[in-house]
Design a protein around this nucleic acid. Structure first.
Lengths: 203, 203
DNA sequence: GTCTATAAATTGATAGAC
DNA sequence: GTCTATCAATTTATAGAC
């Protein structure tokens, strides 16, 4: 970890991310963000006009990161199985590094769908394009006939859900042994990949 | 819908459930719960001592309901495939009827894991017992060799995730066509079932 | 740009009449 | 049991000195 000199604005954004991700909009306090950033509360309003504005900045970032990116995995004509393998590994790895991200995004979107829709519109994010790839693989006869939307949701579900419910899993499946849970989450990368491929490959 | 005469306490609990599920603990207001119940704010404190106490009552109920119950599906020596089919159908059906339940539970548990652990302990809920059934099926050679914990999480993931992320799915996969999304969620029952069985059955 | 002081509004909770 | 009135604490936001 290199200690980099941050501008005040970057400093605020980092502190706000930490607090908003952990407590959500309703639970977060401007005072706590100021303390976390080591500055005065008024400065928050000086840089961002209101709590809402500051939140929007944080949420946009979080949402973009949460959205599945298959860009890198798509390069250079890889097979669907390779794409799935690469994506699952990269996505779970990102989620491990940002454990609060899924709860934060999912919660805020459900609590305030209307407000969020506007934020998303302004973020210029595009829907994923994996669907057509899956369809062409079905036509080619590489995989079984399956509704691409369901396949996509199946994959995402199995990546994100364990992160979302980690505290419950820890308690109920692993008797609060956090080391075992960490191992379990790591295993998901290979487990999800093989579970999916096993289900859609032609016999 | 039959209009049943409710006691004041039941009335409060119903209103509190509605508000807490939708807004979470931090977002919920005692005033709003009182309005929803058509009573005075002070009465909330008369029946339940504080906002926290009222919340605990609601959360315990929600958590119990959220926990997968395979009790009914286990009766009378059904095969694993039948158990999975019955469970997935019943669980998704329950989630459709309680769309705010998963976000509510997942969010509160992540925001305040310690507080929640106590509540869970007092609720007397037991860990699920599907694991041993899966293991015995593997020994019998009915299904492939798979880590039961991963299989269980896979199934739960694919049931719950679409409900949790419904607003995002609506926007990105269905261009905000809510009727299509409803149909999609209904399809999950059969899609998840066959996806799972397809993956674990011996070829 | 950054701080102190304070306003203005909200909210959980209680006291007390009926 | 139910209501009115009100307190006490919190919290976002602003005014103004430096």
């Amino acid at each position: 970890m290199t200690k980099i000199e941050l501008t005040t604005e970057e400093n605020i954004l980092e502190a706000a991310k930490k607090v908003f991700h952990k407590k959500g909009f309703d639970g977060a306090r401007m005072q706590e963000i100021a303390d976390e950033a080591g500055i005065n509360k008024s400065l928050l309003h000086y840089y961002f006009r209101s709590k809402e504005k500051l939140f929007e900045a944080i949420f946009q970032d979080a949402f973009k990161q949460f959205l599945p990116k298959i860009g890198e995995a798509l390069i250079s004509n890889k097979s669907l199985f390779e794409i799935i393998t690469l994506f699952v590994n990269a996505y779970i790895e990102m989620l491990i590094k940002n454990p609060y991200l899924p709860v934060f995004v999912v919660n805020e979107i459900n609590r305030n769908p209307d407000k969020i829709i506007d934020i998303i519109k302004n973020s210029g994010v595009n829907p994923i394009k994996l669907e057509s790839i899956i369809l062409s693989e079905i036509e080619k006869g590489t995989i079984i006939n399956i509704n691409p939307k369901h396949l996509i949701i199946n994959i995402l579900s199995m990546c994100v859900f364990p992160i979302l419910t980690r505290p419950i899993i820890t308690g109920f499946l692993f008797n609060n042994d956090t080391a075992l849970v960490q191992e379990f989450i790591e295993e998901r990368k290979s487990q999800v990949t093989s579970f999916v491929i096993n289900s859609i490959k032609l016999k």
